[in-house]
Simulated scan of single mutants.
Amino acid sequence: MLEELGWRCWGMESLVIAPRTLSAQRGIAGVLITSSQSIPALSSAVAHDIPVYAVGDATADRVKKQGFQTVISASGNAAKLAELVTERLSPASGPLLLLSGEHQGVELAGTLRASGFRIRRRVAYTTAPATTLPPDALAALRDGQIETVMVFSAASARAFCAALAQTGCAAGSLRAIAISQNTMKELRKAGIQTVLTAQSPDMAAMLDRLGPAPSPSSH
């Protein structure tokens, strides 16, 4: 996508994802998912006629492609997902299954439990940070070809900054585009001073913050 807009790009998988397979969950009124990484576990945990409430539009679209019949997007973050659930559902509806990463979803579960909902939180995947930058990205960084980094989660920010610190490259020379306030805070902790935060946690807002690609003569 970025190449089509005129940007020259290097990629880094900052987190190594290990999906988990869950046993079938019975008596569930709905499922909450905070990341598309939960989708493999979702398919094994519940039938496709169970309503799914997704944190954002991209995740919702991926769930629909798996054949789930009722998928509703909060079009935001975990706080927006909590608002969506309290608006659409009643605690009397039955237990809700929350699928998240190993250290994620705890605050969301607590918020909904405080509102009277019964939440079954299950770990749908685990993550481990990548420890090094890809060789091509490292070479481009050292050559001054990379000026901007786009970071899509706080965990990815921590992994990228830890890997960057091992290279000896100066973090302060980079501009970063962060998908959330928490992501921005992690980047600034590492010494990246110019951090622009997306107005909403989605690709369109990230691209808006990124701005137009430089002209070919400025590469």
Rank of each mutant, 00 (worst) to 15 (best):
H48C: 09
T34C: 11
C169M: 13
D202K: 08
A163T: 10
E3V: 14
A205L: 02
A114S: 12
P51N: 02
A213E: 09
D49P: 01
R62S: 13
V31T: 14
K80H: 14
L5E: 13
A154I: 00
M1F: 09
M1Y: 05
A41D: 11
E4N: 12
V106R: 12
P212H: 11
C9W: 06
A130H: 04
I72C: 13
T194K: 14
V85D: 10
L81I: 11
S200Q: 15
T111N: 01
K64D: 01
T70R: 13
A74L: 09
E13I: 03
D61W: 04
S36N: 10
D202T: 07
A190C: 09
H219S: 08
A140F: 13
S173H: 12
K65C: 06
L210Q: 00
T34M: 10
V123S: 06
V55M: 11
G76L: 10
E186M: 03
C169I: 14
T70H: 12
L138P: 11
S173W: 03
P51E: 04
A139G: 12
S115Y: 11
Q37F: 12
T111L: 05
A171F: 01
A157M: 04
R122D: 03
L2W: 03
D49E: 12
A205R: 00
T34W: 12
K80I: 02
V151N: 00
K189P: 00
E186S: 03
G101K: 04
G172T: 08
A137H: 07
G144I: 07
T59N: 06
L96G: 10
A163R: 10
T167C: 14
S44P: 02
S23V: 10
A205N: 01
L89I: 01
G110S: 11
L96M: 15
M150R: 02
E102H: 09
S44W: 02
G211K: 04
T132E: 15
V52R: 02
A213C: 05
D136L: 03
L99E: 06
M203C: 01
L98N: 04
A29E: 06
G211I: 05
I192R: 03
G191Q: 04
Y125G: 06
L112G: 09
A154W: 00
T21S: 15
S44I: 04
V16A: 01
G27M: 08
W10K: 01
P40N: 14
R142Y: 03
S100K: 05
A124I: 09
K189Q: 08
I50D: 04
A24R: 14
M12P: 10
P135I: 05
R20G: 02
S75E: 14
T197L: 02
V123K: 07
F68D: 01
T197N: 02
A139W: 09
I50K: 03
A29V: 06
Q145C: 12
V63S: 08
A204N: 04
A92W: 07
R209V: 03
L112P: 08
S115T: 11
L164W: 04
M1N: 05
E147S: 15
R26T: 05
V106F: 10
A45C: 02
A155I: 00
A204W: 00
A163F: 08
K64A: 13
F152Y: 08
S23H: 12
S218T: 11
D61Q: 15
T132C: 14
Y53N: 09
Q199L: 13
R122Y: 01
A74I: 10
R26E: 12
A176Y: 00
T131K: 14
A18N: 08
A45F: 00
Q145H: 14
A41E: 11
S215Q: 14
